[in-house]
Simulated assay, not measured.
Amino acid sequence: MADDARPAEHARPTDTAALLAWTSVLDALEAAVDDAAAGDVAPTALMRQTAVLGSWTPPVVDGPIPGALVARARRISERQRAALARLTAEAGTLRRHRSALGSVRAATTAQQSAVYVDVTG
């Protein structure tokens, strides 16, 4: 049996409510990590993730995360750290590429200067 779920017949009603509430929270966090891991950087995906992350608040549930979900929460946390490290590295690479393109553009673009035509003389 997975370490992040208990048989329902052994769960007390309050345990079941906490388990459901925390499972929902972990599902949402895991979906965001899955998007990042899949390289889903489409503008709509980024806006959705920004909205989710910007508005995320810790869940309001009775009591701490159930022990049965702690291992899953730790795995999600590790995946978040790995995704953040990868995205940070990719952002650095993109900044360097953008800088290099700017240098090439500046070196190869013809310098334009004002041209005046004397129409009176």
Rank of each mutant, 00 (worst) to 15 (best):
A2D: 14
R6T: 06
P7H: 09
E9A: 11
H10K: 10
A11V: 11
A11M: 13
R12V: 08
R12W: 13
P13D: 12
T14D: 15
L20P: 03
A21Y: 05
A21P: 02
W22R: 00
S24D: 14
S24F: 11
V25T: 14
V25D: 05
V25Q: 04
V25L: 09
V25C: 09
L26K: 04
A28Q: 08
A32I: 03
A32M: 04
D34I: 06
D35M: 04
A36H: 02
A38V: 04
D40A: 02
A42E: 12
T44V: 08
T44I: 07
T44F: 02
T44S: 10
A45P: 01
A45L: 02
Q49T: 02
Q49S: 06
Q49G: 03
T50C: 06
A51T: 11
A51L: 09
L53T: 08
L53V: 07
W56T: 05
T57G: 08
T57C: 07
V61R: 01
D62P: 03
G63K: 05
I65A: 02
P66R: 00
A68N: 00
A68Q: 01
A68L: 01
A68C: 05
A73Q: 01
R74S: 10
R75S: 05
S77F: 11
E78W: 05
R79D: 01
A83N: 04
L84C: 06
A89E: 13
A89F: 11
E90V: 02
E90S: 06
G92W: 02
T93A: 03
R95C: 00
R95Q: 04
S99K: 09
S99W: 13
S99V: 14
S99T: 15
L101E: 10
G102Q: 09
S103F: 07
V104L: 15
V104R: 08
R105P: 04
R105H: 15
A106E: 15
A107K: 11
T108Y: 07
V115T: 14
Y116I: 13
D118Q: 10
V119T: 13
V119W: 13
T120E: 15
T120I: 12
G121V: 11
